[in-house]
Amino acid sequence: MQYILSLFFAAIGAAVFFQGFKLMRKHRLIKDIPRSKIRAMAMGLVEIHGKIRADELIKSPFSQTDCVFYKYEIKELKRRSSGSGKNRRTRLEWVTIATGDRRIPFFAEDETGTAMVDPTGAEFNTEIKRSYHQDRDAFSGISDFISTIKNWDSRKEQLLDVSGLELKPIEAGKKLRFSKSAGDRRYHEYYLQNGDTLFLMGTAASSSEAPGNVVLKKGENEPTFIISDKSEKGTLKALKSKMITAFALGGVTFIAGVLVFLHLIGVI
């Protein structure tokens, strides 16, 4: 069992390490492609900057904010133990117990024109916009609630009833004043609203349905499709730190996995 576990860790490490090269490619691609104005956007991979404009909107699940994209995360504070005997230690850790997102087509607008954006398959890069805390006794049937959110995703007309959750809003950047205990939950929401300024990198393709006959989407041969409410500089910075983390974490995990395996088979 230990052999398999060490090899498993080495394989995970190698996968994370090589993920670093994918991030390196993406980082270079963003640096290499200059910004296009929407009016003069050519077919193929393009980078544009524009504001969101949409007539049809969806509502985010917890704050009921009108948006074109949302992602939610539900985390639960769980007790984790490590070590054995006298060295046994327990600590509280936030564990993601549910996540999901929803996106609808919208328009990106700059000073020269408007382009339709089909966000299917896009990688959204946005910060948490709203967070809520829930005490452990306030709501117990989490699985029922998660399945309700997932079904609710496809029924946009209906509003999700979150009144029974007794959610306490957490202000961004402020420390939580109430106590934390195992079983507490956090509800995080990411969304993009009408008027938000975006950095977009995707494939411009012709479409008879879109105004101006151009739509920005995920390319058939080019997988890069980024929608971010950060600036180009901010997106590059985030990618660079992810890339360094992938190389460092992947490398260390790989080395540790290989060393443990070699130890187990008696080489060292």
């Binding site: 390490f17 190389f247 490398g251 790989f254 080395i255 290989v258 060393l259 070699l262 130890h263 060292i268």
Partner: peptide, 15 residues
């Protein structure tokens, strides 16, 4: 070869 040495060799390989 010690564990440290092997670790260093693998790390150099990754670099």
């Amino acid at each position: 070869m010690g564990a440290l040495m092997i670790g260093i060799v693998i790390a150099l390989g990754l670099i």
